Amino acid sequence: MRESAYGPGRTFWLRKSSYSGSNGGQCVEVCPAAGQVLVRDSKYARPAESRPIIAVPNDAWPTLLELALSGGVGELGEALVLERRRGGDTAVVDRQGIELLFTAPEWDAFAKGVADGQFDLE
């Protein structure tokens, strides 16, 4: 699914897994951008333009997708770490300390979308 959102001084399109359900509110959202893929968590209550966003370099994106499919964790190059937390939550943490914490159902819906090719770079 795609929805319009706002970034600094521009409008961009976000993708979320079709497995996330129709209630919105709890999903991994991604936005392909120049040389990177922006990731955010829809459950943050702040306005869309002020939610934390992590930039995943394009060369690290395939590794993130592979880890999502396999249920794995690890470092994604120099930029990011994917960690599993108590209760099955998944954290995506960048080197500046920005952390996105996804619940097990959120990450599972994302992984199902990955398996369907919904997040392949075009």
Score class of each variant (00 low, 15 high):
residue 56 V to N: 03
residue 56 V to P: 01
residue 77 G to H: 12
residue 93 V to E: 02
residue 57 P to D: 12
residue 121 L to G: 00
residue 8 P to N: 06
residue 2 R to M: 08
residue 94 D to M: 06
residue 66 E to P: 00
residue 74 G to C: 05
residue 107 W to V: 03
residue 80 L to A: 01
residue 95 R to P: 12
residue 86 R to Y: 10
residue 106 E to S: 13
residue 116 D to P: 08
residue 81 V to K: 13
residue 88 G to P: 03
residue 5 A to G: 09
residue 104 A to E: 05
residue 1 M to L: 02
residue 117 G to H: 05
residue 117 G to E: 15
residue 70 S to T: 14
residue 16 K to Q: 07
residue 105 P to L: 00
residue 19 Y to D: 12
residue 95 R to I: 00
residue 10 R to Y: 11
residue 75 E to Q: 14
residue 49 E to W: 15
residue 71 G to E: 03
residue 38 L to T: 09
residue 69 L to C: 11
residue 83 E to Q: 08
residue 91 A to C: 10
residue 103 T to C: 04
residue 19 Y to R: 15
residue 46 R to S: 12
residue 98 I to D: 04
residue 65 L to E: 05
residue 118 Q to H: 06
residue 3 E to S: 14
residue 77 G to A: 10
residue 10 R to S: 11
residue 60 A to L: 00
residue 87 G to W: 12
residue 121 L to D: 00
residue 22 S to V: 07
residue 57 P to M: 15
residue 105 P to M: 01
residue 96 Q to I: 09
residue 86 R to P: 07
residue 117 G to Y: 11
residue 118 Q to M: 12
residue 110 F to T: 03
residue 68 A to E: 14
residue 73 V to C: 15
residue 50 S to L: 12
residue 43 K to Y: 09
residue 13 W to M: 14
residue 111 A to P: 15
residue 113 G to E: 08
residue 97 G to T: 06
residue 87 G to V: 00
residue 67 L to H: 08
residue 70 S to R: 08
residue 79 A to C: 04
residue 86 R to M: 10
residue 1 M to S: 11
residue 92 V to H: 00
residue 118 Q to S: 10
residue 76 L to K: 04
residue 90 T to A: 03
residue 104 A to F: 03
residue 103 T to G: 11
residue 17 S to I: 13
residue 12 F to E: 04
residue 93 V to S: 00
residue 19 Y to A: 12
residue 64 L to I: 06
residue 24 G to F: 02
residue 99 E to D: 01
residue 72 G to Q: 08
residue 39 V to H: 11
residue 80 L to H: 08
residue 107 W to I: 07
residue 119 F to N: 03
residue 11 T to S: 02
residue 101 L to R: 15
residue 43 K to C: 08
residue 33 A to H: 09
residue 65 L to T: 02
residue 79 A to V: 14
residue 90 T to E: 14
residue 42 S to I: 01
residue 21 G to Y: 01
residue 116 D to E: 14
residue 119 F to P: 10
residue 113 G to Q: 07
residue 69 L to Y: 11
residue 35 G to T: 13
residue 94 D to Q: 10
residue 8 P to D: 11
residue 5 A to T: 13
residue 102 F to N: 02
residue 39 V to L: 15
residue 22 S to Y: 08
residue 96 Q to C: 10
residue 93 V to R: 07
